[in-house]
Structure formats: structure tokens, C-alpha cells
């Protein structure tokens, strides 16, 4: 602590120009700064990436060889159906971790500082969620790579596969707002996981991710067909296998937008209340 502080002079409070609102540009800037923090954290704690590396490998192997013969007759026939399904399921499951980590993060003192800064209230949350898209990207890449190793050759070509991957990442980011909301309102990280899986399992398994819809009883068929996850799975299949951007893709994006529109404000409000 040298004496150089005396070179600073403080501008008195009364002589500052101040505003009580945050612009959209500032909100974006703040969120990106917070995302930068998230990326540094991911780099510092690589062990937190175990789930996104191991899960795609194990799930892809497991589901392919368990269900392949029973559902599609052969593994090779099942892969074009399964890989998009497993991709969506894996990445959405990964987004639960976002809520859990947010809960742990929020209990730390640094969130007090974030709250005391004149930044957009949403920035610490949006930044954390944005940084986690890196995790989704890793899971997406590994799932496609595993599929490729097992013999999956997407008919749509590389470009379409990349678009499909981006679609999944975007939708998972939207869905992660649901888990972020649980993260903010829950008392502990463990309970976040508990509630989140209650939402996650029906959402991912009651979809067309693993089985053809027409094998299901009528009530389930109805739910599977309205489930946004089904639309996302169909959109990814169409993109990866035939390189077509179908109405299912648009429905998925619309669903994602609706989720963000509902859960982002809810989450921010709960976050601000929670002090």
C-alpha cells in the first residue's frame, strides 16, 4: 500500500452526472463481461466438465446398443433416429447443472458486489447462462463424434449438422432459464437438482427422442406431440439427416423464446428479492 492514493481525488457526489436506468447496450455489455467471468471459471475448474464429456459417450453407447435392435431392427438404422434424440436429451440434462452451479455461486460473497454495482440486474444471471453454452457445445460435439465413430453418417452434411448443433445449444440455453429460476428460489444446490430432474425427466423421456411416437398410448402421444422437446428432436433429425430447416425448427425457436420471455423476468425478480 503505497502513498499514491493521494493522487486520486474523488468527484463529489453532487457533481456527478447520474442516471437511474440501464440501457440495452449496457445490459449486453455487462452480460458479456459476466460471461467472460464464467469462461475463466470453466477454464480454472476443468473437473466441472466431466459430466459434459462422459455423459454423451456413455449415453450414446448405452442407448444405441440397448434399444437399437429392439426399436429399429439394427444399430445402423437406429443411429439417424437416436443421435439427434440423445443429443437433445444430453444437452438439456447438462443445462440442469447451470441452475445448480448458479445456486452455489449466488451463496458466495462476490454476488453481493455484483448487486452493489450499477450494472443491469440480469447480467450476473445471463452471463453465467451464456458461459454455460460452452458446456453445451462440448456435449453437442462429443455426441456427434460418438455417433460418427459408431457409424452414423448424417445425410445433411457437415453444414447442416453444425446448424442443428447451434439450434440445440440455443434451445438448451433457453431451457436453462427454467433451471436458473429453480437455482435462485431453492435453498440449496441439492434441492435445485431434485426439482430440476422432476421437470427434466417427463420433458426429455416423454418425447420422440428414443422411440417412434406411434408405439405410445394415445394420452402419451398427445403429450409427446405438444412437447417442445419433440419438435426440437424432429428439427434436429430433419437438419442432420436431410439438411432441411422445417417448421419444427421454427416451433422450437418460438418455444425457446417463450421460455426465456417467461422465466428470465421471473428469475431476475426472484434474484432481486432474495437480496
Amino acid at each position: 500500500m503505497s502513498a499514491s492514493m493521494s493522487t486520486l481525488t474523488i468527484t463529489p457526489g453532487a457533481q456527478r452526472t447520474l442516471k437511474n436506468h440501464v440501457t440495452i447496450a449496457q445490459t449486453l455489455r455487462n452480460s458479456l463481461s459476466m460471461a467472460g467471468r464464467g469462461l475463466i471459471k470453466i477454464r480454472r475448474t476443468p473437473e466441472q466438465l466431466i459430466d459434459v464429456t462422459v455423459q454423451p459417450i456413455i449415453f450414446t453407447l448405452m442407448f444405441t446398443y440397448i434399444f437399437g435392435g429392439a426399436i429399429a431392427g439394427s444399430v445402423a438404422d437406429y443411429l439417424p433416429l437416436l443421435i439427434p434424440g440423445i443429443l437433445v436429451q444430453t444437452v438439456i440434462t447438462t443445462s440442469v447443472v447451470t441452475g445448480v452451479q448458479l445456486r452455489e455461486d449466488m451463496d458466495k460473497g462476490v454476488f453481493d458486489r455484483f448487486k452493489s454495482l450499477p450494472i443491469a440486474r440480469i447480467a450476473p444471471l445471463a452471463g453465467a447462462l451464456l458461459a454455460d453454452t460452452v458446456r453445451y457445445a462440448i456435449a453437442t460435439t462429443l455426441t456427434f463424434v460418438m455417433g460418427f465413430i459408431m457409424g452414423y453418417r448424417p445425410g445433411g452434411g457437415l453444414g447442416a449438422v453444425v446448424v442443428a448443433g447451434l439450434l440445440v445449444i440455443a434451445c438448451s440455453w433457453a431451457i436453462s432459464w427454467i433451471f436458473a429460476f429453480f437455482g435462485v428460489i431453492a435453498r440449496s444446490a441439492a434441492s435445485v437438482q431434485g426439482i430440476s430432474f422432476l421437470v427434466l425427466f417427463p420433458l426429455t423421456f416423454l418425447s420422440n427422442a428414443f422411440v417412434p411416437v406411434d408405439t405410445l398410448p394415445p394420452v402419451l402421444q398427445w403429450f409427446v406431440n405438444v412437447n417442445p422437446v419433440s419438435h426440437l428432436v424432429t428439427a434436429v433429425r430433419d437438419l442432420a439427416n436431410t439438411a432441411t430447416f422445417t417448421s419444427d425448427a421454427w416451433i422450437s425457436l418460438l418455444g425457446a423464446a417463450i421460455i426465456v420471455a417467461i422465466f428470465a423476468p421471473l428469475t431476475v425478480r426472484a434474484y432481486m428479492k432474495k437480496a
Binding site: R37, I40, K41, R44, T45, K108, G109, V110, F111, D112, R113, S116
Partner: peptide, 12 residues
């Protein structure tokens, strides 16, 4: 604001 328990990011 400087809190009772340092409000800085431990991982950074």
C-alpha cells in the same frame, strides 16, 4: 461496498 467477508471471486 466492502463486506465483512471479502466479496471477490475466489476462482479468479
Amino acid at each position: 461496498v466492502t463486506g465483512q467477508y471479502a466479496s471477490v471471486d475466489e476462482t479468479l
